[in-house]
């Protein structure tokens, strides 16, 4: 089971990175903690994965759920560096050569959103349809639509303020 899980996980590892990135764009320590927490929750939940949805969708649910409710800021312990060697250096594109200033401004604007709105944005960015976002989140389609318009306005306003 572990091999199978790792296979699926590695194919969809970007899902976890993206969730970590959207929730903690400029806080690498929290991002690492969240990354570990999602991995752990996913492994714990894996026996319940029936395969009737895509693994990535299932992983998104686990990850967003963890990020929204179950994740609490954890005090870092000195011995953590052994475990996190290399692997947990989650890419931080905030200062990378590829990340444009505009993209960074957008991420900064996303940072100010509420946890629920961040979840909706992350699903939207993954090209989930309004219907799929509604189902995953447990809200109505019109609610998704209203929220995305509001989020767009909020982000636009933030960008305007930045300029």
């Amino acid at each position: 089971m572990e091999d199978e899980f790792l296979l699926f996980l590695n194919e969809n590892l970007g899902v976890i990175h993206r969730i970590c990135r959207i929730y903690f764009p400029d806080r690498p320590e929290e991002r690492e903690d969240l990354y570990q927490e999602i991995l752990y929750q996913a492994w714990k939940s894996y026996p319940g994965f029936r395969g009737d949805a895509k693994f990535s969708t299932w992983l998104y649910k686990i990850g967003l759920n963890t990020a929204i409710v179950h994740f609490r800021k954890i005090k870092r312990r000195p011995d953590r560096s052994d475990v996190t060697d290399g692997l947990l250096e989650i890419p931080d594109s905030s200062g990378s050569a590829n990340g444009s200033d505009h993209a960074e401004t957008l991420m900064q604007a996303v940072k100010t959103l509420s946890p629920v709105d961040k979840a909706i944005v992350s699903l939207y960015l993954e090209d989930y349809s309004y219907e799929e976002i509604a189902q995953t989140m447990g809200i109505s389609r019109s609610n998704v639509s209203v929220r995305l318009v509001r989020i767009k306005n909020q982000i636009a306003q933030k960008i305007k303020n930045e300029l």
Binding site: H17, L87, P91, A103, L106, L125, K152
Partner: peptide, 20 residues
């Protein structure tokens, strides 16, 4: 703004998946 974000998001996604 969300479309701009989506473009940069997809680019980033490609980089992440390729390296981890």
């Amino acid at each position: 703004p969300l479309n701009d974000l989506k473009n940069s998001w997809n680019q980033e996604d490609f980089e992440m998946n390729g390296t981890r």
